[in-house]
Design a protein around this nucleic acid. Structure first.
Length: 134
DNA sequence: GCCAACGTTGGC
DNA sequence: GCCAACGTTGGC
């Protein structure tokens, strides 16, 4: 089992939208590195859901329910999507500020490659975030 | 809302 | 194959 973090602008698609939809197709990714990570995702992998721009916090845990398949939002065969499902909201959101300040999260890919919308997490990073979330 | 950083595109 | 131009992202 692997651990991931996905970023989304909550004004475009938020955790609340995912909860309402139960599950969603995570598509529209147009970055090769992010695409490669999508392809590595396995059913059952856990995903931290992070709000960028207007919220700047990790807000919940989702789970991969379908492994990569062609992105139906484009005819370009290079791009893929996965399906994920809301699993559990964080009791306390974990803010970017908190993430930046935490020694166990100092190497997190979220900070290292701030423009990637899909990044892998180590198990320790995942557990640390979940602990901070309550 | 702005702007720096960065990835992608397209002309050469 | 290079690189300037362009578009997008994300933190502030």
């Amino acid at each position: 089992m692997k651990f991931w973090l996905v970023k989304t602008d909550p004004e475009t698609y938020s955790w609340e939208d995912l909860v309402k939809d139960k599950k969603t197709s995570w598509d529209g990714v147009r970055n090769y590195q992010a695409r490669n990570y999508l392809q590595e995702m396995k059913k059952g992998d856990q995903v931290i859901f992070y709000h960028s721009r207007s919220d700047l916090a990790a807000v919940g845990i989702a789970r991969i329910t379908r492994e990569s398949y062609p992105d139906t939002t484009t005819d370009d065969p290079r791009w893929v999507a996965v399906e994920l499902q809301a699993e559990k909201p964080f009791r306390n959101k974990v803010s970017l500020e908190e993430i930046k300040g935490h020694p166990k999260l100092s190497d997190i890919a979220l900070l290292k490659q701030s423009r990637l919308s899909v990044v892998p997490l180590t198990e320790l990073e995942f557990k640390t975030l979940v602990t901070l979330a309550g």
